[in-house]
Amino acid sequence: MHVVVCIKQVPDSAQIRVHPVTNTIMRQGVPTIINPYDLFALEEALRLKDQFGAKVTVLTMGPKMADQALRKALTFGADEAILLTDRAFAGSDTLATSYALSSAVAKIGQTDPIDIVFCGKQTIDGDTAQVGPGIATRLNLQQLTYVSKIVSIDKDARQIVVHRRAEGGVQVLKTAMPCLITMLEDTNHIRFGTMADAFRAARYTLTEWSATEAGVPDVTHCGLRGSPTVVKKVFAPTAKTVKATPIAGDTPESLSQTLIDTLFSAHPGLQEDLESRVASNSQGA
């Protein structure tokens, strides 16, 4: 069994800078981590390694420094790590990102066929949840998003049963591998890596692929050029034209009194609502 986990290196802090010309986010100089949602995907993959002896390959697209995220993934127990890095990828939106990543996944599968591709539910910086399904759609993999549990895997029949979170409940889905799973958060806990894995990660020589090496068929579909969405402006939210009414008072008690007086005289409906709620509550009690 071979599973590929797509991870992303994301800024750890809320610091942000925007390129004044291209309006893209500049990530240099900000401490980075593995996107926390991806760790649930990685742990689930490592459990398949424990259970079935699956080989776990981690893949990331990013700048050269994203090798740190891959190395970190190796310390948890991943077997192989591939960094997809090329200037052509800069400024990719989700469509262009899934294009590049799916090319790399396909290339990985040529030498060692893949059973499952794992992704996190979404990233903490983009928050779109679009890249996983994008890869599935491009590679014609069965798409299983928001998976809360892998119920069973039949290796020989190449079938898998999962729980998928839906709006008002959970779907129990059965499908064939190869498939793509995006793992829901809080479904597991990333393990502590072993010393042996830490040593191996430190010595490991990462595979680095350019767009050409990854077999990307058409680089014009990558990066800014390949992105149908254009960020037209980045701006700070405007303050309400009417500022918050300051409530004054020397003590918390007088402050509270003044607030309630001001509130109820400005919104008499609110007072009626609250009174009737409280009245009906105490009748019920």
């Binding site: 809320a14 610091q15 942000i16 986010i25 700070a236 939210p237």
Partner: peptide
């Protein structure tokens, strides 16, 4: 958009 203080128009 990422950062806790900005919006972007796409």
């Amino acid at each position: 958009t990422f950062g806790g203080s900005l919006l972007c128009t796409i």
